[in-house]
C-alpha cells in the first residue's frame, strides 16, 4: 500500500520534468565536463594528424591550408567520445557545452 502514499505525496512536490525546449533554457543544467560541440584552437595546432589517426568514427579529415595541416571535424559523424582531445599533444581541442547540433545543412556541421 505504501506506493499509494508515495503517489499521493508526489502531488505536492514540484514536477520532475524539465520543460525543454519550451521552458526556460537556462534551467537546462549541464555539468562542466560535458562533451558537446568541439572547439579547435588553430593557433596552437601543430598539424601532427594524431587526432585523425585515432578518431574511431572517421569524423576528422586533415585539410592542408596556408598554415599547413589542420583537422576539420564533421559533427554528423562524430560520436563525442573525446579521444581527439585525449590524443592531442598540444591540447588544442576542447569541448563546449553546445549540444543542440541538429541542422538542415551538412556544411554547418563542420568545425574548423
Amino acid at each position: 500500500m505504501s506506493i499509494i502514499w508515495e503517489a499521493y505525496r508526489q502531488l505536492f512536490r514540484p514536477k520532475s520534468t524539465e520543460k525543454y525546449p519550451f521552458g526556460n533554457r537556462e534551467e537546462v543544467s549541464l555539468p562542466d565536463g560535458f562533451r558537446g560541440k568541439m572547439i579547435l584552437n588553430r593557433e596552437s595546432c601543430i598539424g601532427c594528424t594524431l587526432c585523425e589517426k585515432d578518431c574511431p568514427s572517421g569524423a576528422i579529415v586533415i585539410i592542408v591550408d596556408a598554415k599547413g595541416k589542420r583537422p576539420t571535424f564533421f559533427l554528423d559523424r562524430c560520436m563525442f567520445c573525446g579521444q581527439c582531445q585525449e590524443s592531442c599533444p598540444k591540447k588544442c581541442i576542447s569541448y563546449s557545452k553546445e549540444f543542440e547540433n541538429a541542422a538542415y545543412d551538412r556544411k554547418s556541421l563542420e568545425v574548423r
Binding site: G33, F34, R35, C81, G82, Y95
Partner: peptide, 22 residues
C-alpha cells in the same frame, strides 16, 4: 546525472582508457 557530471556522458561514458582512466 552523477555519471554525466563525472565522466561527461550519461550512458557511453568513455571513462576507462588503455592504461588507466580519463
Amino acid at each position: 546525472d552523477l555519471m554525466e557530471a563525472f565522466t561527461g556522458n550519461r550512458i557511453t561514458s568513455a571513462y576507462n582508457i588503455i592504461g588507466g582512466v580519463r
